[in-house]
């Protein structure tokens, strides 16, 4: 207890590294699905498509308004109580579902803000040459909005990676769950959790580098 047990920490590195892929998989799949969902929501909100717009508003309100852990418990433990066959939703699926819905609600709003932020004159110009709403979105608005939305979307991705640490409550042994169990066996809490913390940190640091690179690329058209 008095000094750091470095030997134990080093021994833990390969063990915990084995659980990192699952953590990244949860966040990666969650992010892709959340992005798709968020784009759909944002477009629905911007174009104010009747009925869908109202549904989207309720969806966003619920998933932004309740804690992620509550949503995970609802999907994993709550739904099978209503329909027993929903037990087929395993922990990994439930976690990805939870991450997707929770973060898509947030991301939809920041994508919507980026879309609305694209100068109105561009929309008018596109419509004046006869583009449809779909073409306008795909060719003119979304490419420009992407550049604006990128930093905040990366923020959500980083947040999502760390949110996967809730998955052990659903029985998914990812990085955090593995660390908790190891710490329970050794009672070397500081050592175990600092190893996990450094792993999360390195992953997030690499993402920040990726973000920087993407920003440079997306800014090319604007710098001279």
């Amino acid at each position: 207890m008095d000094v750091l047990n470095v030997e134990y920490m080093l021994g833990l590195v390969p063990v915990l590294l084995g659980y990192l892929p699952l953590t990244l998989q949860l966040a990666g799949v969650g992010m892709v699905l959340a992005l798709i969902l968020a784009c759909l929501f944002a477009v629905v909100r911007v174009l104010r498509i009747p009925v869908l717009n109202q549904l989207t508003i309720v969806f966003i309100s619920f998933f932004r308004g309740t804690p992620l852990l509550v949503q995970l418990f609802l999907f994993y433990y709550g739904l099978p109580q209503l329909v027993s066959a929903l037990t087929v939703i395993d922990g990994i699926t439930a976690t990805i579902m939870g991450l997707t819905m929770h973060f898509s609600a947030y991301m939809a709003e920041s994508i919507r803000a980026a879309i609305v932020g694209v100068d109105r004159s561009q929309t008018e110009a596109a419509l004046s040459i006869g583009m449809t709403n779909g073409q306008l979105m795909r060719r003119i608005v979304l490419p420009q909005a992407t550049r604006v939305a990128l930093p905040t979307l990366m923020n959500y991705f980083i947040d999502m990676i760390k949110a996967t640490s809730l998955a052990f409550t659903l029985g998914v042994t990812e990085l955090m769950g593995a660390t908790q169990k190891e710490a329970a066996g050794s009672f070397l809490y500081f050592e175990a959790f600092i190893v996990a913390a450094i792993m999360y940190w390195i992953v997030v640091e690499m993402l920040s580098k990726l973000q920087h690179y993407l920003e440079i690329r997306l800014n090319k058209a604007y710098s001279r």
């Binding site: 099978p80 037990t87 395993d90 659903l170 769950g177």
Partner: peptide
């Protein structure tokens, strides 16, 4: 064996997992 935080165990039993 299925490990999970204690707070999740009875939920897993209840939901037949």
């Amino acid at each position: 064996y299925q490990t999970a935080n204690f707070s999740g165990l009875f939920g897993m039993l209840e939901s037949g997992r």
